[in-house]
Write a protein that binds this DNA or RNA. Sequence first.
DNA 1: GTGAAAGCGCTAACAC
DNA 2: GTGTTAGCGCTTTCAC
Lengths: 344, 344
Amino acid sequence: MATTVQDVARAAGVSAATVSRVFNGGRVTAERAERVRRAAAELGFAPNRVARSLRTQRASVIGLLIPDIENPFFTAMARGVEDAAQQTNLSVVLCNTDEDVDKERRYLEVAMAEQMAGVIVAAASRDRTDLSVLEGRRMPVVAVDRRPRGSDVDVVLVDNARGSEDATAHLLARGYRRIACITGPRGASTAEERLAGYRTALADHAREHPELAAGGGMERPDEWTRFADFRVEGGHKAMTDLLARPERPDAVFVANNLMAVGALQALREAGVSVPGFGVLSFGEVPWAPMVDPSLTTVRLPSYDLGWTAATLLQDRIAGTPRPLQTVVLRTALEIRDSTAGPRA
Amino acid sequence: MATTVQDVARAAGVSAATVSRVFNGGRVTAERAERVRRAAAELGFAPNRVARSLRTQRASVIGLLIPDIENPFFTAMARGVEDAAQQTNLSVVLCNTDEDVDKERRYLEVAMAEQMAGVIVAAASRDRTDLSVLEGRRMPVVAVDRRPRGSDVDVVLVDNARGSEDATAHLLARGYRRIACITGPRGASTAEERLAGYRTALADHAREHPELAAGGGMERPDEWTRFADFRVEGGHKAMTDLLARPERPDAVFVANNLMAVGALQALREAGVSVPGFGVLSFGEVPWAPMVDPSLTTVRLPSYDLGWTAATLLQDRIAGTPRPLQTVVLRTALEIRDSTAGPRA
DNA sequence: GTGAAAGCGCTAACAC
DNA sequence: GTGTTAGCGCTTTCAC
């Protein structure tokens, strides 16, 4: 059907091996190489990657497993991966694991069976995501955004704890005193790190201002925290729940963008007005500048996360010897109107 | 390295052919099949898809080419494709063409070289997207959302003209009289169909209410139209441009969601208040209910679009004989506050 | 039903 | 440098 190296070889009067060398940077005299190239162009030859993969045991495709393709954070990351992958002519296969460990495992199996060159994984779960299958087959892997437990792979992370700490400190500085937190599911490293940053900031503040802590009403911080699902629905439910507390919070730190949408909806429905009630979202929302009042957010380095991960992966694929790395990228606080202060 | 059919065959005391038959529904006695399955499970055998593809000349992967992975419309579509593909255990490879015909061509070549089972394409351009390469190799193709010229393939479309007509009619019914239109690039079928629907509605209205048309100031509808790029930036520029007209519009019909974001930004900057100035977006925006005032939109059947396309593609892959189809899916008008009327 | 053998298209080892 | 040869792991005749 399609033209093969053999066809090109015949047309150019050389052997199949020579054709292969022309297309893979082997040593061939300029004159013959030219002949091969012309014949190939004439016949519309394109190397069959499947055959190449079977032979070399290595594909020119990398897999990118993300938990939610509808989350702009991950699509921006995907773009970063894609742009970096183009450096070495790798194609990127996007797989949506849907925060589902089983689906994720199936995709990892696909990656193996397809002999992909490597995989970048934003793990569905810190505990239950198992990358050992890949490590067993020595497939290059980079974990991104979330660090799966017990895997010896390169990792590219967001500085979640620091970003959350800064964000919470900002809320405190603006005068909010009963700051609730809506975080992601237990077991997700991002959820726990963001929660940890929030608590650190509260604890620091209490230590520095013991007079406030005494009457501030946040003696048991656990009660001001809700674990949700990183989705709109969960954010909505958690916010509604927090508002029903006997002691109402006066601000909320939400650990991702989608839940922030849900929280805002809940506040609207309850007739609570922002920024009298402060709202801060960890993770940019594309429409943040649009909402009234505009939303203060922690901007994540999503594109860079993908770009860095893909670059690391390409090093591994090339076999560059290098110790395992953990790269941590910084966030940036984008102060807008939703945290203007309780009396604003 | 990994276990092969040979290993399993040896362990089960049968031939490689038998192992293959067990995994592909060939006729094997129950007793031997059981032995093979046990051996396979024990050795952790998974068929090498690359080798299978090379042999059968057909992969269990389908390609999905979309112009913008950061647009929620396309990611929702991707989900539809993915869900439908699971019916026959196909994996979905997502490729981001970035509205770039060259990039698109490269990905089509990848699809060929990887011997994908089929491709679903949301074309980057109606005129310049060329699917003939695939047709030449008899690769199953379904075009989605955009109909590329001169290609004989199944197509799944949105009823753009009708949706736009309904939307524009709604603006007229609410009392807006100088309705501008921001549409996509010339050459994009969606852009032109949406524009056509807008014009149809205006023309119908002028015919039915000649008394309004005379003084309504919309004699030359071309001047109320801007062709932009389907992105935030373009929407912003087009809106700014329209507001600078000597005769200001009192409403705008924006042909996609991202440009609507840009248009809203421009309106804000210009101090124009909605819904005194009406805004209607073709294409849902995830945050539509959040913006104040909430945005009236035309809801697109994005998920269904992907689902339908994938189903058609699977029929083609299976070789089901069937004439070429064009499936058109309906939109729905979601009336919210941004089109309450010029005096609201 | 089952096994032996051939071959998908490519590249790596080896001899020249 | 170049060609010849072998083989990646699988499926599919073709005999039996």
